[in-house]
Structure formats: structure tokens, C-alpha cells
Amino acid sequence: MRQLLFLSCFILAALPARAEESAPKTTAKLAVELNGAETQDNSCTLTFVITNGLGQDIDQAVYETVLFDQDGKVNRLTLFDFGALPQDRPRVRQFAVPNTTCEGLGRILFNGGKTCAGGTLTTSDCETGLMPTSRTKIEVLG
């Protein structure tokens, strides 16, 4: 009976470790949320909230972005420089897009990484880890 009790305790003690081992691993990501869009003085001010979950600080992150109008036509290509992004700490960045109203924009595409500097990070890390979302009517893709 003691052996059976010992064996049961041993099996139960091993279960949590096995459950953790079989749990899916989360991938590193750079969450970029379009949090707001406001037209002011014939410019569209885009507000982004960025959280760096790539595992190390980013000294500079620059993305080539494409802005599309409501009809799906390319409005312009531009670079958004998100600057320094500390690990696991949200940051807010704003970009004013001149001669454009926010109501005229339909979609923003993060076309590719231009710069991803910091530690051992590469531009590829910032591209594959990009997780764009939007809280506005403007769709954001990556």
C-alpha cells in the first residue's frame, strides 16, 4: 500500500512539469496598435501604442508604411520612426501625415522594416515579430 501511495504522489508531482512542457510557447512580438486617428489642420495625426516583447530593448525601429485611401488606392509611402522601445514597456508615438484627412484613409500597411537596432536584433526580427492591430476604423496590416 505504501508503494502505491508513493507512486501516486510521484506521478502527481510530475504532472505540472509535463503540462508546462506541453504548453505552446509564445513567440516574441512587437505589438503595434493604431490607437487613434484625428484630423487637424489638413493633417491626419495617427497615434500608435507600441509594446516591445522581443526580449531586449530596441534602440531604433523604423518601418516603411503604405497609406491607402478609402478606395484602396495608395495615398503615399512613408517611414514611421518609432525610436527607442524598451522591453515590455508600452510607448506612445504620434505621426502627422500632411495633406491627408484621417477620414480619407482606409488602410495602413507595414510594408517592411527599414531599421531594427538594438542588442542582437535584426530587421527580420522586427518584421516577423510585428503584430499590428487597430482601435480605429482604419485597418492596419503587417
Results as ranks from 00 to 15, higher is better:
residue 44 C to I: 07
residue 102 C to E: 03
residue 68 F to V: 04
residue 60 Q to S: 15
residue 129 G to W: 05
residue 64 E to Q: 13
residue 76 R to N: 10
residue 106 G to S: 13
residue 104 G to M: 02
residue 124 S to E: 15
residue 105 L to F: 06
residue 56 Q to D: 15
residue 83 G to I: 00
residue 91 R to V: 03
residue 45 T to F: 13
residue 68 F to L: 14
residue 47 T to A: 08
residue 83 G to V: 00
residue 123 T to F: 09
residue 61 A to L: 02
residue 45 T to Q: 13
residue 52 N to Q: 04
residue 89 R to N: 07
residue 93 R to E: 04
residue 38 E to L: 15
residue 82 F to M: 01
residue 72 G to E: 11
residue 132 P to F: 14
residue 97 V to H: 09
residue 85 L to A: 09
residue 83 G to Q: 01
residue 85 L to K: 03
residue 64 E to T: 11
residue 42 N to T: 11
residue 118 G to T: 05
residue 37 A to S: 11
residue 39 T to K: 08
residue 64 E to K: 12
residue 47 T to D: 10
residue 82 F to V: 01
residue 72 G to L: 09
residue 102 C to Y: 06
residue 55 G to N: 06
residue 35 N to K: 14
residue 114 K to L: 13
residue 119 G to Y: 14
residue 132 P to N: 02
residue 63 Y to K: 04
residue 132 P to V: 05
residue 83 G to C: 01
residue 96 A to L: 04
residue 77 L to I: 15
residue 37 A to Y: 08
residue 115 T to V: 13
residue 57 D to K: 08
residue 42 N to Y: 04
residue 91 R to A: 06
residue 46 L to M: 14
residue 103 E to G: 08
residue 76 R to M: 13
residue 73 K to P: 02
residue 49 V to E: 02
residue 47 T to G: 07
residue 74 V to R: 14
residue 64 E to V: 14
residue 57 D to T: 05
residue 91 R to M: 07
residue 96 A to K: 09
residue 132 P to A: 04
residue 46 L to K: 11
residue 99 N to G: 03
residue 42 N to M: 06
residue 88 D to H: 06
residue 67 L to M: 07
residue 82 F to E: 01
residue 118 G to L: 12
residue 56 Q to T: 15
residue 103 E to Q: 09
residue 44 C to K: 06
residue 37 A to H: 07
residue 67 L to E: 03
residue 72 G to H: 11
residue 90 P to K: 15
residue 48 F to D: 03
residue 103 E to W: 04
residue 124 S to L: 11
residue 43 S to Q: 15
residue 84 A to Q: 12
residue 44 C to V: 06
residue 112 G to F: 07
residue 42 N to W: 01
residue 90 P to F: 07
residue 71 D to P: 01
residue 126 C to E: 04
residue 44 C to Q: 09
residue 125 D to W: 14
residue 74 V to A: 06
residue 74 V to S: 12
residue 68 F to A: 03
residue 117 A to T: 04
residue 121 L to N: 13
residue 89 R to S: 08
residue 99 N to Y: 06
residue 47 T to F: 05
residue 57 D to F: 07
residue 79 L to W: 00
residue 79 L to E: 00
residue 66 V to L: 14
residue 114 K to H: 09
residue 100 T to C: 04
residue 128 T to Y: 11
residue 42 N to L: 10
residue 100 T to M: 10
residue 65 T to N: 05
residue 125 D to T: 05
residue 102 C to M: 05
residue 126 C to K: 11
residue 94 Q to T: 08
residue 60 Q to T: 10
residue 44 C to S: 02
residue 48 F to W: 03
residue 117 A to N: 13
residue 83 G to A: 01
residue 53 G to V: 04
residue 44 C to R: 04
residue 84 A to Y: 06
residue 35 N to S: 14
residue 80 F to T: 03
residue 96 A to T: 10
residue 112 G to M: 09
residue 93 R to Y: 00
residue 78 T to L: 15
residue 80 F to D: 10
